[in-house]
Simulated scan of single mutants.
Amino acid sequence: MKYFLFVFFLFSLSISAQNTTTLPEGSSSPNATLSDISWMEGNWSGEAFGGITEETWGPPQGGSMMFSFKLVSEGKVSFYELGHIREVNNTLIYELKHFHGDLKGWEEKDEVQQFKLVKVDGNRVYFEGFTFEKVSGNEINIYAQIGNEDGSSEEVTFNFKK
């Protein structure tokens, strides 16, 4: 019985701790520009998945902000992500590709993961399944819905510091 209550308590916490969202069906992304997320620019580091994370965001140029991500675990690169946030039709779209440590891609050659903008709200920018939060000038959080092998998903928090 104690185990059941503990699991229920953890489940309740996870429901109330949601920081990610999706675009309501039939809705379109709101107007936004790269200036709404330009505070992401810089070199960021943190810890996640049992390793060290690095994320670097370039300045807004040419209608996009490019980024790279690296996870180092047990002294080896576990995976990379490369991508950008682009201005398209007066809104933003977050796009990325994953690569193993040897740079072999996860997605097919022409496949890109795309996440539509849901809303811009103060110090947070919400994309479908991802939220970027400015904590301070030297700290950000990225909340991501990560899929599990069993078809479920969980929200993971990446805390980065400059």
Results as ranks from 00 to 15, higher is better:
residue 37 I to F: 01
residue 108 E to T: 14
residue 36 D to G: 03
residue 59 P to H: 03
residue 130 F to K: 15
residue 52 I to W: 10
residue 146 I to A: 11
residue 3 Y to A: 12
residue 32 A to M: 06
residue 95 E to N: 05
residue 54 E to G: 08
residue 4 F to C: 03
residue 58 G to F: 00
residue 78 S to T: 12
residue 39 W to V: 01
residue 16 S to D: 05
residue 84 H to L: 05
residue 94 Y to V: 06
residue 67 F to E: 00
residue 74 E to Y: 05
residue 5 L to K: 15
residue 140 I to F: 04
residue 11 F to M: 14
residue 39 W to I: 01
residue 11 F to E: 11
residue 67 F to A: 00
residue 16 S to N: 12
residue 136 S to N: 09
residue 113 Q to K: 13
residue 128 E to T: 12
residue 95 E to W: 02
residue 20 T to H: 05
residue 119 K to Y: 08
residue 44 W to C: 03
residue 44 W to R: 08
residue 38 S to W: 04
residue 90 N to F: 07
residue 135 V to K: 14
residue 123 N to K: 13
residue 2 K to E: 03
residue 51 G to E: 15
residue 102 D to L: 14
residue 108 E to S: 13
residue 154 E to S: 12
residue 11 F to H: 06
residue 70 K to S: 15
residue 106 W to G: 10
residue 140 I to C: 10
residue 80 Y to P: 10
residue 120 V to K: 10
residue 23 L to W: 11
residue 153 S to R: 09
residue 162 K to N: 13
residue 157 T to I: 10
residue 7 V to R: 12
residue 123 N to T: 15
residue 60 P to Y: 02
residue 24 P to S: 09
residue 79 F to A: 11
residue 160 F to E: 02
residue 120 V to P: 05
residue 81 E to G: 02
residue 72 V to Q: 14
residue 130 F to Y: 15
residue 60 P to A: 15
residue 121 D to T: 05
residue 115 F to P: 00
residue 102 D to R: 10
residue 109 K to F: 09
residue 42 G to T: 07
residue 58 G to L: 00
residue 10 L to K: 02
residue 32 A to W: 03
residue 14 S to N: 11
residue 33 T to H: 07
residue 162 K to Y: 06
residue 60 P to F: 01
residue 84 H to N: 08
residue 123 N to I: 09
residue 131 T to W: 02
residue 12 S to E: 02
residue 122 G to K: 12
residue 142 I to Q: 12
residue 71 L to E: 15
residue 141 N to H: 14
residue 56 T to F: 00
residue 78 S to I: 02
residue 65 M to H: 01
residue 56 T to D: 01
residue 121 D to W: 04
residue 38 S to I: 02
residue 141 N to T: 02
residue 59 P to Q: 06
residue 128 E to P: 11
residue 77 V to G: 11
residue 109 K to Y: 06
residue 7 V to A: 13
residue 60 P to W: 01
residue 26 G to H: 12
residue 159 N to G: 04
residue 143 Y to P: 12
residue 148 N to C: 05
residue 161 K to H: 14
residue 129 G to C: 09
residue 30 P to M: 03
residue 69 F to Q: 07
residue 55 E to L: 01
residue 38 S to L: 02
residue 133 E to D: 09
residue 22 T to F: 04
residue 57 W to M: 05
residue 85 I to F: 00
residue 110 D to A: 04
residue 148 N to S: 10
residue 101 G to V: 04
residue 52 I to E: 14
residue 33 T to K: 13
